[in-house]
């Protein structure tokens, strides 16, 4: 059993525990490489099926290829996809690209707020209808009690403090100082009414592991990750106004792996292309405590 097998087995075990323990379970799918690996692992865990909805928070500023790719996989893999967004903020143009607010506030509105209210069912959810091939308003407004997220411990300081199963209060807050112990493959599956649990099957994976697994399993990924001949590619995907491509000529998975192992990115953080992390000192940590994925 190699290290990828070990990671896969642990993640699959966690996904199955989540499925057994949470009646209202969903999985966040950002369309990025991590949550797509997570989606693949769910198909591993459930033998080709994904027996819970995928939730996508659409900021409306995602790079268009991402949405095309999303809808293609939803149809091909028969996925149950729900999306939600902060329609009010978008209508009122209270966004960073509209020049109304700073980057962090924009993230707070379009991601954190949208996520919070989509999970709770307070705001409209749109579900893909596989017969009509279109999204329609979801009549189910039940709050999700278990949410599977593709966070990795190596991404950034605060994520290394996560448990595999981590409670969130009714305000979506994360109480880092007082986390229960987690051992022997036993997780926090009991929770108070109104609270929910974030499940992190990818906690032990690194960026390199993700790409090694994508290569081994031949998982389809968005073309934005690869250089199309212009000498740039995206290392991390997000909204176009705040995510910038990096200079790299890696045009396939194998070249990305080489680049991460020994090449120009062996010493540079993955999220270095994300502008909101730099806007203030505690950017991601404060977003996270507030419920950001």
């Amino acid at each position: 059993m190699d290290h990828l097998d070990q990671l896969e087995n642990t993640s699959v075990h966690i996904l199955r525990e989540a499925y057994a323990n949470f009646k209202h379970l969903g999985m966040l799918w950002s369309i990025g490489k991590d949550s797509t690996v997570l989606l693949w692992l769910a198909r591993k865990a459930f033998f080709g099926h994904v027996p819970f909805p995928l939730i996508h928070i659409d900021t409306s500023f995602k790079i268009p290829e991402m949405i095309e790719y999303r809808d293609r996989l939803v149809a091909e893999w028969h996925l149950n996809l729900i999306y939600g967004q902060n329609q009010v903020a978008l209508d009122e143009k209270r966004t960073f690209p509209d020049g109304a607010v700073d980057r962090l506030t924009c993230c707070g509105l379009l991601k954190t707020e949208a996520l919070k209210n989509t999970l709770s069912g307070a705001w409209p959810r749109y579900r893909f209808n596989h017969v009509k091939k279109t999204y329609e308003l979801d009549t189910n407004t039940e709050p999700f009690t278990g949410v599977i997220v593709g966070a990795r411990a190596d991404e950034e300081g605060s994520r290394s403090k996560e448990r595999y199963f981590s409670a969130r209060t009714d305000q979506n807050e994360w109480e880092i100082a007082d986390q229960p112990p987690e051992f022997w493959n036993q997780y926090k599956t009991e929770f108070a009414p109104g609270t929910h649990v974030r499940v992190h099957p990818l906690l032990d994976w690194t960026e390199l592991n993700i790409w090694e697994y994508i290569e081994r399993e031949q998982i389809p990924t968005v073309s934005l990750y690869y250089d199309q001949g212009e000498g740039t590619r995206y290392r991390s995907l997000g909204c176009w106004p705040c995510t910038h491509p990096v200079e790299s000529s890696a045009s396939n998975v194998g070249e990305i792996i080489v680049e991460l192992r020994t090449g120009k990115f062996a010493n540079i953080a993955e999220r270095s292309g994300r502008a909101q992390d730099k806007d203030d000192g505690g950017g991601l940590e404060s977003l996270r405590r507030d419920g950001y994925m």
């Binding site: 290290h3 300081g157 960026e207 991460l260 010493n267 540079i268």
Partner: peptide, 21 residues
């Protein structure tokens, strides 16, 4: 020490599977 930098990720130049304890 571990941080968000990729540099904290030990990687083998030869790309062989790494033993982690």
């Amino acid at each position: 020490i571990h941080d968000d930098m990729q540099s904290a990720r030990p990687t083998d130049v030869d790309g062989a599977p790494q033993e982690r304890m």
